[in-house]
Nucleic acid binder design. Structure first.
Lengths: 123, 123
DNA sequence: CGCTTTCTGCAACGTTTGGTTGCACATCAC
DNA sequence: GTGATGTGCAACCAAACGTTGCAGAAAGCG
């Protein structure tokens, strides 16, 4: 069974910069494009675009305050994203454990038989 | 503390197509670019490129068999990737819970809260 | 054997995405 | 008012994902 994952949520969280931004927002409670960019290796504009992406998938929401645009995490949607990470992780983990046990069973079966483990041919 | 994540591993898993490919490989045990592409909405070439990416980060390893190139999951590296997903999920979850409890504490503090200065008003 | 099929790899190309710079406009401080 | 700061928009660049087209190698069959 494939875990029903929201691809938009995933790709939003998949980007390293956006992940760091979420980290910062979680730590600081809120932030603007300018304030976040000071802690990131990218320009304010890049951060602004990422914030737009995060806003589009609902992971953050924005509140204008004077000339500033304050962004903060949307708890509910963020919790959903975390849940999806956990779901995929769990599913894969289970499947991996299953494969492992099967492999062991096979190995037990023909014991010292001719195993065809081609070593990873590094190029 | 920020969870030390391997960006290469993450972005490898971040792509929806690659995620589906890993699913397929887990289910079938092994596969070729051609066989995988039959279960995916992309061409064989695209799959081949993705396999190259997965191979580069060590999530799969390849074994030539005649004219075929058989790919299978690298259990150890895959387990590491799953662990990273879980780690980030856990860290975020914890931080989210903390924020929530703080928010509740604040709300308990000024209770009927007639505060208007720069506070983000929750609706 | 030779011919066809099938599977692979490489190259060229288009589109989307993450990133940059530059500029115009709005707001706060003086 | 003027100047500093914060924002948004547009043009542009590079890398990534995806495509088509083609050439070569191994298997199958007359």
């Amino acid at each position: 069974m494939t875990v029903a994952v929201d691809d938009d949520l995933w790709s939003a969280v998949g980007d390293p910069t956006r992940r760091r931004m979420l980290d910062l927002l979680l730590a600081a409670g809120e932030g603007t494009a300018t304030s976040l960019s000071e802690h990131l290796p990218v320009t304010r504009q890049a951060v602004a675009k990422h914030l737009a992406v995060l806003d589009r998938v609902g992971l953050v929401h924005v509140a204008p305050s004077g000339r500033e645009m304050r962004y903060r995490i949307d708890d509910a949607q963020f919790a959903r994203a975390v849940a999806q990470l956990a779901a995929v992780g769990t599913a894969w983990d289970a499947r991996l454990a299953r494969i492992k046990s099967i492999a062991e069973a096979i190995q037990r079966t023909h014991d010292a038989a001719g195993d065809a483990t081609g070593e990873t041919t590094k190029e």
